[in-house]
């Protein structure tokens, strides 16, 4: 079983299409979406419909803070650009999509895994895992051996051995990592729809369940087209520049 892990899709149709096509080529037979399907990008309805279709066929879909904001709660907690996009997004979404978002769960536990958008200690508060301290807090708050989360847009892999020290590793795209069972892990695949590390390629990860292999990927896609759509929709210029890998300061 190969599980594709996508998070922070942010209404970026081009990026999501590219990741899903890549996952399919690599034999993914299960999908987990870890939230933030909307916000920032120009194709919220298409992305939410795509996630909902996968969910109808058995995929796991969790709620992110942007989804919660669109569905009704949480709008006030976002920054000004995000709020403006949320208001625009609400107009774009069909009633079906809005109710799909409103019904999503915060977390999903299964065997050794915990899937959650923000963190393992209080998913509903959407606090960020910005380093080893928060990663340790999250790992200690759950019994699951492996936590997968989104919310942070840069890919990173935290791990904690028997001495309880938390280490941070910046994954090398395409190089599988064996998730040793003597260790606890917290993996952030990175944002599919809005990478922020200067490399415009979309982030996602695959988990080979049988061999316990986690692979982080960077998938190039037509980010110029996605940026052009953001401009055409009259959304903030900064969001378009972000996709081009040259955020305005």
């Amino acid at each position: 079983m190969t599980i594709a892990l996508l998070t922070d899709l942010h209404a970026n149709r081009e990026a999501v299409e590219a990741c899903l096509a890549h996952a399919q080529q690599h034999g993914a037979d299960r999908y987990v979406f870890m939230g933030d399907y909307v916000g920032y990008g120009a194709d919220p309805e298409w992305v939410v419909r795509t996630v909902a279709d996968h969910a109808a066929r058995g995929a796991i879909a969790l709620v992110g803070n942007h989804d919660a904001a669109v569905a009704g709660s949480l709008r006030e907690k976002l920054n000004a650009d995000a709020r403006r996009v949320i208001d625009w997004t609400r107009e774009q979404l069909s009633p079906d999509s809005r109710s799909f978002l409103a019904a999503l769960p915060l977390r999903h536990e299964e065997g050794p895994w915990l899937f959650v958008h923000a963190n393992g200690w209080a998913p509903q508060d959407y606090e960020y895992i910005t380093g080893t301290m928060e990663a340790g807090r999250s790992m200690r708050a759950t019994r699951s051996r492996i936590t997968f989360c989104g919310h942070m847009h840069d890919p990173v892999l935290y791990h904690m051995g028997i001495q309880q020290r938390v280490e941070q590793f910046v994954p090398v795209p395409g190089s599988p990592v064996v998730l040793s069972s003597a260790r606890r892990w917290l993996a952030v695949p990175g944002s599919a729809g809005q990478p922020r590390d200067g490399n415009p390629a979309a982030c996602y990860a695959t988990l080979d369940e049988f061999d316990n292999l986690l692979t982080f990927w960077r998938i190039p896609y037509d980010h110029a087209a996605a940026a052009a759509k953001i401009r055409a929709a009259g959304l903030p210029e900064a969001l378009a520049r972000q996709l081009e890998g040259r955020p305005s300061r």
Binding site: G161, I162, V177, V178, S180, A182, R183, D211
Partner: peptide, 28 residues
């Protein structure tokens, strides 16, 4: 334990005549 974890991570990735061929590993 950690040394063993390291071997379990690295050995499956090695190839060629200059390393012992990896067959299978069992977890902790």
């Amino acid at each position: 334990i950690v040394g063993f974890e390291v071997e379990q991570m690295i050995m499956p990735l090695l190839k060629g005549p200059h390393v012992p061929r990896y067959l299978v590993a069992g977890g902790f």
